[in-house]
Amino acid sequence: MPIEKLRELVFASLMAALVAIGAYIHVPIGPVPIVLSTLFVLLSGLLLGSRWGLASMGLYLFVGAIGIPVFAGGKGGLAHFLGPTGGYLFGYLLASWITGFISERLSGRWMKDILAVVVGSLAIYSLGVPWLKLVTQLSWEKTLIFGMVPFLIGDGIKSAVAVILARSVRPILKRQMIIE
């Protein structure tokens, strides 16, 4: 296997582990405490790009599915996929891919990263909210109040932090030849 590909593989595994660690870190801001998983989901898209970002999130979900406690609150297992949170978890795949896709393609510096994380954050809800509605049989209005509105402030902060972190760690990664 070429060393560049191997390096990307190891980096994707590291990002999956960071998402898992993020699920353990709570920051008490606003009515709902922030869990840092989504911050690392967006960061994986920004740093790894669409393809490896998607692979990294697929790996994270796989590890969670086999029962390793990597989901929010130190939980793991298939219940999280089949239950009301399943859509948000599958949303991680889409978010990481779409964040990477925008970040890779658009020109410009800050703006492309900001646009990428905003669309990425919305991508999580684009799967999470309909899934929650389907599973709980709530109306659209109630589902949005229950599963989206309380988290928006936290997501705004996490998106901003993801952009700042991505911009500050990219030079380190380029120096170590982990990313181009």
Binding site: A16, L59, V63
Partner: peptide
């Protein structure tokens, strides 16, 4: 490859927890 990535993730998970 999937097997290797799973092993690496689990290894990194414990290493990063120690790091934290």
């Amino acid at each position: 490859r999937v097997g290797l990535m799973v092993s690496l993730t689990l290894r990194f998970f414990s290493i990063i927890l120690d790091e934290v």
